[in-house]
Design a protein around this nucleic acid. Structure first.
Length: 734
DNA sequence: GTATCTCAGGGGTAT
DNA sequence: ACCCCTGAGATACTA
């Protein structure tokens, strides 16, 4: 069915003679064409020119499934040398006709940077004497001679591994004296604020990520785990950069640089921390239909769509005698007049011809030309190859932002030329989704309808099981079997202490009448969090902490203070649903960003641990034991690697009364983590447990957290078989 | 609250 | 150097 060219009933097809601009060759083959190996200058034996291997392999010769970590070739550490002469990879093969004796696994962008001034005119290979050729540092980088001496850093700086990052940071810190903390006075909202800028070593953070990432994933193919881990690291770094940059806000003489997404992306790119760097047609290993992204850079890092702004990704594919561009993926994001027919079809506009905005010279819209991406789409129409489609959707939690949904593979069915609003010619392409793929964008459309109307939904039991106790209704759904709902319980939105737990050290709370602001070293709550406001401007938790200090009743800041994120109730639409084999579970209608607050664990707080409560009925299925140990999630140095630690034993029983959190199931590869939070409340302990997203979570994905390990098993026979199906599954949980 | 403006930016490709 | 369906903050606008 996909082979139809659909030349009948093409809107406006006859109004434009494409032969004037396109040399359309007679169609001999309508299925994807894989040129023979002989078309290569140095043919890899049996290898296709573009990678079409399945995620699990086998991989053709000359194709590396995973591109590890290429770094500045100025450095010559043994580790890099090993990488530069990779063993196990047949490096004689040269895909894509590269003539340099290079490793196969070098990211494309490693070749395009001009050599540094000192080696101008010398090829990277010659300058380094290695076969890597990958000086992946940006061309604008500061040369070694201009690097400021940084005695406080370790000897590792000398090896050049992190020099590009150091340079980048130096560039951004021009004029700022070095030191652990620099204090300045500033005024904000009438308050005198003591500004402290911790001299954070982003370089060290990146290296830490790199080390962890390398150790964890170096040997593995790109798969769901590695892609997920990469994205988690990326957003962790991005939030960290955001956090640091926000502290500069309002300080005279120190400009705040935005675009943490780009900065984190550049750091990762320069270190080669990315997956699927080699362009390919069709599915991308480790990326699943329905996956969501919040930055274009993320699409680039995982190999789904390389251009950071461009809507069409394509690559040259050699076919018999000549090379032609084929489209790989498109991003439909609202920048042009695209039309959505339904969830399975898309009319996509070609690129170019736009009236220039500020940084473009031309002010008038022009006819689009059949070149670049447009040509690639046209060629792909005739070749019939699959095209990945990423749809941009408005982000509910961040109205100025977008969510990108990977909607799977499409085929281009027809193309024509239309007149745009201004009268200029615009290419149009009709794409139809391949059948048999998991639902992705259509899920979003369904949710939209559920929100707008009270349409009857299959399996809906209750529109709001909280009976209005939460800020948003929480629906109860069962489309699996006949069960009419979980056992009765009372819905309470927050934790209740039956008797107060006194703290040994009384807390006073902060005096930030206008709300706590990043960089204010006078704020006692920020001090307790290690000098940082733990949340970014849009309320994302920067990283997991052993204990998070939020503002509380004894603080002078208002309820909308940025350090009270867990106190504002639900911010996303949740739903309790019947799982296939794990009883009731929890999922979200809204897309969830990494670090976003989900809910707290409500119930009755008992000043005991689950172990101590052995045999007690309240230590049952619906309880939370804060004394269990968990795997750390963070990869950042310092306080970020701490696992949760509560100041006193805490068991929350949600058996008779609780909130949505009691329905969250266990997983050994969770997408949610828990965080102990101490709220400032005079002498009384106000300890809470809140849940945050590990990574981005698509709508309707079950939310799970790691129930953790009990310190000892003796006498504890309440083991349950784990059904999480993760490759890291521990087989059972408690 | 939403629409528009402004501008610093990224990788990729062509020159 | 140029292209491109960014993205965030600031400003202007509408209700």
């Amino acid at each position: 069915m996909e082979h139809s060219l659909g030349q009948d009933s093409v809107p406006g097809f006859g109004s434009f003679d494409k032969s004037r601009v396109l040399d359309v060759r007679p169609l001999r083959r309508l299925v994807p064409v894989f040129p023979s190996a002989s078309s290569f200058s140095t043919p890899p034996q049996g290898a296709a020119p573009f990678v079409c291997a399945s995620p699990a392999g086998p991989f053709p010769p000359g194709v590396s499934p995973f591109f590890p970590f290429f770094i500045s070739s100025e450095s010559q550490r043994p580790f890099e040398q090993n990488l530069q002469t990779p063993s196990g990879i047949p490096n004689e093969n040269q895909p894509f006709g590269f003539t340099n004796p290079i490793s196969n696994a070098v990211p494309i962008n490693s070749f395009r940077n001009p050599p540094p001034p000192s080696t101008a005119g010398v090829t990277p290979n010659q300058s380094t004497g290695t076969s890597n050729g990958g000086d992946s540092t940006p061309s604008r980088r500061i040369t070694r001679s201009r690097v400021q001496p940084q005695p406080q850093r370790g000897a590792a700086e000398e090896d050049g591994l992190s020099e590009s990052v150091v340079d980048a940071e130096n560039k951004r810190r021009v004029g700022r004296p070095k030191g652990k903390f620099q204090s300045q006075k500033r005024t904000r909202g009438g308050q005198d604020i003591n500004v402290a800028l911790p001299d954070v070593d982003i370089d060290a953070i990146v290296d830490n990520v790199l080390t962890t990432y390398t150790n964890t994933l170096r040997q593995t193919d790109a798969n769901k785990e590695s892609v997920g881990y990469l994205l988690m690291c990326y957003d962790l770094l991005r939030r960290k950069i955001s956090q640091i940059e926000e502290m500069k806000e309002g300080i005279p003489g120190v400009s705040r640089t935005g675009r943490s997404d780009l900065r984190a992306g550049t750091l990762f790119m320069n270190k080669g921390i990315r997956t699927n760097a080699q362009k390919r047609i069709g599915t991308v290993p480790g990326v699943e239909v329905g996956d969501i992204f919040f930055f274009r850079m993320e699409l680039c890092l995982v190999g789904l769509h390389a251009p950071t702004m461009g809507g069409i990704d394509y690559m040259g594919v050699k076919n018999s005698s000549e090379e032609e561009p084929l489209a790989l993926s498109i991003v439909s994001s609202g920048g042009y007049e695209d039309h959505i027919q339904d969830g399975n079809e898309l009319i996509y506009s070609g690129q170019g011809g736009n009236a220039g905005n500020d940084n473009r010279k031309d002010k008038e819209t022009k006819d689009q030309k059949l070149e670049r991406g447009n040509l690639a789409l046209e060629k792909s129409l005739h070749r019939g190859n699959d095209v990945r489609v990423i749809r941009g959707v408005k982000d509910v939690s961040n109205p100025t932002g977008k969510v990108y949904v990977y909607d799977g593979l499409y085929k281009i069915h027809e193309s024509w030329v239309d007149k745009g609003k201004s009268g200029a010619n615009v290419f149009k392409y009709r794409l139809v989704r391949l059948p048999g793929q998991p639902e992705a964008f259509t899920v979003w459309k369904s949710i939209e309808q559920w929100k707008e109307t009270n349409t009857t939904r299959v399996g809906l039991i209750l529109p709001d099981l909280t009976s209005g106790a939460e800020t948003f209704p929480v629906s109860l759904v069962n489309d699996v079997d006949g069960e009419k709902g979980p056992a009765h319980f009372t819905y309470i939105p927050s934790l209740k202490y039956s008797k107060p737990v006194n703290l040994t050290e009384p807390t006073a709370g902060c005096n930030c009448t206008g709300g706590c602001l990043p960089g204010n070293s006078n704020c006692t709550c920020i001090q307790k969090n290690g000098g940082y406001l733990p949340y970014t401007a849009n309320g994302l938790l920067v990283n997991q902490k052993s204990l998070l200090h939020e503002c509380g009743p004894s603080c002078k800041c208002p309820p909308n203070c940025r350090n009270r994120v867990s106190q504002g109730g639900l911010k996303i639409r949740l739903e309790v649903f019947k799982t296939k084999d794990k009883g009731w579970g929890l999922r979200s209608w809204d897309p969830i960003r990494a670090g976003a607050f989900l809910c707290e664990y409500a119930g009755e707080a008992l000043n005991v641990s689950g172990i101590e409560k052995l045999g007690d009925d309240r230590a049952d299925d619906y309880s939370f034991d804060a004394n269990r140990t968990c795997q750390p999630l963070g990869v950042l140095p310092g306080d970020s690697n701490e696992t949760p630690h509560v100041p006193f034993p805490l068991l929350i029983s949600a058996n008779t009364a609780g909130n949505v959190a009691r329905f969250m199931n266990h997983s050994c590869s969770p997408n949610v983590f828990w965080q102990p939070i101490l709220r400032e409340n005079k002498n009384e302990s106000d300890l809470h447990v809140a849940f945050y997203a590990v990574g981005h979570i698509p709508p309707m994905t079950e939310l799970t957290y790691d129930y953790g390990m009990i310190p000892y098993e003796k006498g504890y026979q309440r083991k349950k078989i784990c059904l999480c199906r993760s490759i890291k599954c521990r087989s059972f949980f408690y």
